[in-house]
């Protein structure tokens, strides 16, 4: 599968090591299929390599534009949010507007939020750690876009709990504020308080019990470092949630995205094919605890 050529329309620096690239296909007929929420693309920094990157927004995904330049980027444009952790992600993070990157995808299983009116069915709890908010932004946007009443307020309860190392590392602060304004129950918590920070300090799990979630029909979407997801899922289970309604986004070495290369195996799962989003209940609960699987 050859990468489709996309032009960097905008590079927005989210934090010191996280950037969001707005990409538009060089030619409309070359565009990759529109991703479902939670799917990922493989991005190529030409001459450096390829990496699996979350889609944080897509023009055909979200109900609304929120100032990421998607109107100007046009149809088929996609926003990827990238953390600079290696050679490829570094090259992507510093890609300047106008430069070309390769896109293959979309790959894997998403959250499944397109398939129902989730907010009508029960509480939706989004828990993100660090850059884990990236593959969740389009879900929240979509749920918020489809489930507002005449006055523009959310029908149903949407909890967004976001953790970050410190205030300067909080991504999508404007989105978080916008969701809160729509009526979502948003809590942002940091590990380390810095001068001027007036919000919560502590682990994301500390925000779960006081939030007032009705565990009965609730769904939870969790993305962050694997340890954070384990503790979060345990806290949600303790609250009384059905573990099969807690979804986590798992990460392993992704190279082909197509299930051919064998790198992203986690026990019975080929994560680029069967994940990255999987239900936490059952086998996955154990897989996430097993050493060196």
């Amino acid at each position: 599968m050859d990468p489709a050529l996309y032009r960097v329309v905008a590079n927005r620096r989210e934090t010191s090591d996280v950037s969001s690239l707005t990409l538009a296909p060089l030619k409309a007929e070359m565009a990759v299929a529109p991703p479902r929420h939670g799917q990922f693309n493989m991005l190529t920094a030409f001459g450096v390599g390829e990496a699996a990157i979350s889609v944080s927004r897509s023009s055909r995904l979200s109900g609304r534009d929120s100032g990421q330049g998607l109107h100007t980027a046009g149809a088929g444009s996609i926003v990827h949010t990238i953390r600079d952790v290696g050679a490829v992600t570094h090259a992507l993070c510093v890609a300047s507007a106008g430069s070309l990157v390769g896109v293959r995808g979309p790959f894997g299983q998403g959250w499944g939020a397109e398939d129902g009116d989730w907010l009508a069915e029960g509480d939706v709890v989004v828990v993100a750690g660090g850059i884990g908010l990236a593959p969740l932004r389009s879900v929240v946007d979509d749920l918020a876009g489809r489930s507002t009443d005449a006055s523009g307020r959310l029908r149903g309860r949407l909890f967004v709990i976001a953790g970050a190392r410190e205030q300067a590392q909080v991504i999508f602060a404007d989105d978080l504020a916008r969701w809160a304004a729509l009526g979502a129950i948003v809590s942002v918590t940091v590990d380390v308080s810095t001068p001027g920070w007036t919000g919560h300090v502590g682990l994301v799990t500390a925000q779960i019990a006081p939030a007032g979630i009705d565990p009965g029909g609730a769904r939870a979407l969790v993305c962050g470092p694997e340890i954070m997801m384990r503790f979060t899922a345990a806290a949600l289970e303790k609250l009384g949630m059905d573990p099969s309604r807690i979804f986590v986004s798992l990460e392993r070495n992704m190279q082909c995205g197509l299930g051919w290369c064998g790198h992203c195996q986690l026990g019975p799962l080929i994560l680029c094919r069967d994940g990255p989003i999987v239900a936490y209940g059952g086998a996955v609960t154990h897989l996430m605890r097993e050493r060196e699987r």
Partner: peptide, 16 residues
């Protein structure tokens, strides 16, 4: 929770 925070999970990219 304090122990998990000691891991600095979102901090250095070398820590997970």
């Amino acid at each position: 929770m304090t122990r998990v925070r000691l891991l600095d999970l979102y901090g250095s990219s070398r820590a997970r």
